[in-house]
Simulated assay, not measured.
Amino acid sequence: MSQGTTSKQLLHLVMGGRVTDPRTLEFENPEEIDVVGVFPSYTAAVDAWRGAAQRTVDDAEMKYVIVHLHKLLDPEAEGV
């Protein structure tokens, strides 16, 4: 974080892959999960998620998600 910045870093992971059922988040093969990347803001993560999801829009068994890493790292912290 640069000096003088007071906002807290909110990391987000974008990942996806083939799911066993499109209504769930159970991945068919966890070893083949596509990790799109880790992003410093929810807005950046949504942009990356949208791009990945749109590339696979015709495949109902492919699902991409945003994981709020900052909530896992600090469960008591607030933020999107």
Rank of each mutant, 00 (worst) to 15 (best):
D47P: 01
A52H: 07
V19C: 04
V80E: 09
F39A: 03
A44P: 02
A48C: 07
G51P: 00
G79M: 07
A45G: 10
P75K: 05
G4V: 13
R55Y: 05
Q3K: 11
T56V: 09
E28A: 12
A77S: 15
Q9F: 04
I66G: 08
K8R: 13
I66W: 05
R50Q: 12
T6Y: 07
Y42S: 05
P30M: 06
L13N: 07
S7Y: 09
M62T: 10
H70Y: 10
V36R: 12
E32G: 06
Q3A: 04
H70P: 02
E78G: 10
V57K: 13
T24P: 02
V80S: 12
K8F: 06
T6D: 10
T6H: 12
E26S: 05
I66D: 13
R18F: 04
M62A: 02
A44K: 14
Q9T: 08
V36E: 00
A60Q: 06
W49Y: 14
S2W: 02
E76N: 13
A53T: 03
R23W: 00
M62W: 13
L11K: 06
P40H: 11
V36Q: 11
S41R: 06
D21Q: 08
G17D: 06
V57L: 03
E28K: 14
A60I: 09
A60F: 01
K8E: 13
R18G: 01
G79D: 08
P75Y: 04
R55G: 01
T56M: 15
E32K: 15
N29I: 06
D59W: 02
V80D: 10
T20I: 09
P22C: 05
V36W: 07
V14L: 01
A52N: 05
N29E: 11
L11H: 02
V38T: 12
S2A: 14
P30V: 02
V38F: 03
P30A: 05
P30I: 07
L69Y: 03
G16E: 06
V35E: 15
G16A: 05
D58A: 11
G17I: 00
F39Y: 15
G4L: 11
V46P: 00
M62S: 04
V35F: 15
D34H: 15
V80F: 00
V36H: 06
T6N: 10
A77F: 00
A77V: 04
D74K: 09
T6I: 11
H12Q: 03
P40T: 04
V19G: 02
G37T: 08
Q3F: 04
E26K: 14
V38M: 08
V80M: 06
G79L: 10
T5D: 13
A77I: 02
E78Q: 12
E26A: 13
V36M: 03
G17N: 04
A60V: 11
S2E: 08
A52P: 02
M62I: 06
G51W: 03
D21K: 10
V46D: 02
Q3G: 05
P30Q: 07
K71Y: 05
L11P: 01
M1T: 05
V36F: 01
L69C: 09
R50M: 10
T6C: 08
L72R: 14
V57M: 06
T6M: 07
V67I: 13
Q9K: 12
F27G: 02
V19T: 07
E26C: 07
